[in-house]
Design a protein around this nucleic acid. Structure first.
Lengths: 70, 70
DNA sequence: ATATAATTAGAAATATATTTCAATAAAAGT
DNA sequence: ACTTTTATTGAAATATATTTCTAATTATAT
């Protein structure tokens, strides 16, 4: 898996699970304590977030880490 | 799980699995294409690596993502 | 006891993650 | 059509990840 493929999966899965939870970017960003702008960048594959942020996102969405690259 | 707890688990599990593979920090760092210094910082909880680096580490160690926070 | 490999560390430099602010555009609801 | 929520974007500033170089410990083997 190349770096771009990783960011694609992370982006797509976060957006997928966020919508499944019926959360806006603003709401999720607030829960995870990051800026709305940055969450938007993550979902659009324009950011490579730290492991801590990714795990906090998973916790907020009630998914396990593997789901994020599934 | 607090941020420090996350970094602790990531650190400990990477070191554990690296030793299980009988790899030196230098060897693994080279496989993952990061500096030895930085891998050392990760294993000593002094770095919060990006998701791309963490996943490349998992790939090099043949473990899945969940293992890193198990 | 000594040589060798492996880990750890400080400081400075560079690259990149992340925020803030402001503004635009698109989607959805009434 | 209008209002409101939601998503997206640019540029500039700030915080932090990551490298490089060098050197010092610590562990392991001979």
């Amino acid at each position: 898996m190349t770096d771009n493929e990783i960011l694609e999966k992370v982006a797509d899965n976060i957006r997928l699970e966020r919508l499944r939870c019926r959360l806006s970017q603003e709401k999720l960003a607030e829960m995870v304590d990051i800026s709305t702008k940055y969450l938007n960048m993550i979902e659009n594959r324009k950011a490579n977030p730290t492991v801590v942020i990714v795990i906090r996102i998973c916790q907020a969405l009630n998914i396990d880490l593997n789901t994020i690259i599934a």
